[in-house]
């Protein structure tokens, strides 16, 4: 962890480490008191179990948030004066990079679905937090953004 990390990364690590070797995910809100991480359930396996042709991966190599839980969490946070600023998910033993699947889902057809968000990828190796990187959509593609720390 870098010295300028806010401390939220500790809460995120505490969420994703026990989920290893599956991926974890969640939201980060910014409010009057700084950043707040909110873990979300990874429901990819539910889709894989029922629609394996459309969702061929599992929680080990993919994540998908429960969309209704997601929308309600965003609405609740906005009522408290918070704003969604970052999405995080973990990678198990493959490093903190923004994969093609990450990019295809975050900016399908090259258009951001949720403009302006930061995307944090948390590397978990052998069940332990290793590092994280933050990415932002700039000039049509995702690039590492060291200006935003968790």
């Amino acid at each position: 962890m870098a010295v300028n990390d806010s401390g939220v990364i500790g809460a995120i690590a505490a969420h994703v480490e026990p989920l290893y070797p599956e991926e974890g995910c969640g939201l980060v809100f910014e409010g009057p008191n700084g950043l707040r991480a909110l873990p979300m359930k990874n429901v990819y396996d539910k889709y894989h179990a029922r629609l394996p042709d459309q969702f061929p991966r599992t929680n080990r190599t993919a994540y998908r948030m429960d969309e209704l839980q997601l929308e309600r969490a965003i609405e609740d946070a906005e009522k408290q004066g918070e704003k969604l600023v970052c999405i995080f998910h973990s990678h198990c033993d493959v490093g903190a990079y923004f994969s093609k699947e990450d990019s295809d889902m975050a900016a399908p057809d090259g258009l951001e679905m949720r403009p302006g968000l930061k995307w944090a990828v948390i590397a978990v190796n052998q069940g332990r937090f290793a590092t994280y990187k933050v990415f932002t959509f700039v000039a049509g593609q995702f690039a590492e953004d060291e200006s935003f720390r968790l």
Binding site: C25, Y44, R57, T61, A62, Y63, R64, M65, E67, L68, L70, E71, I87, H89, S99, K100, E101, D102, M105, A106, M113, R114
Partner: peptide
């Protein structure tokens, strides 16, 4: 009906 963009990836 609610249209909600996925937050998902690999």
């Amino acid at each position: 009906l609610s249209i909600i963009p996925a937050i998902a990836g690999g």
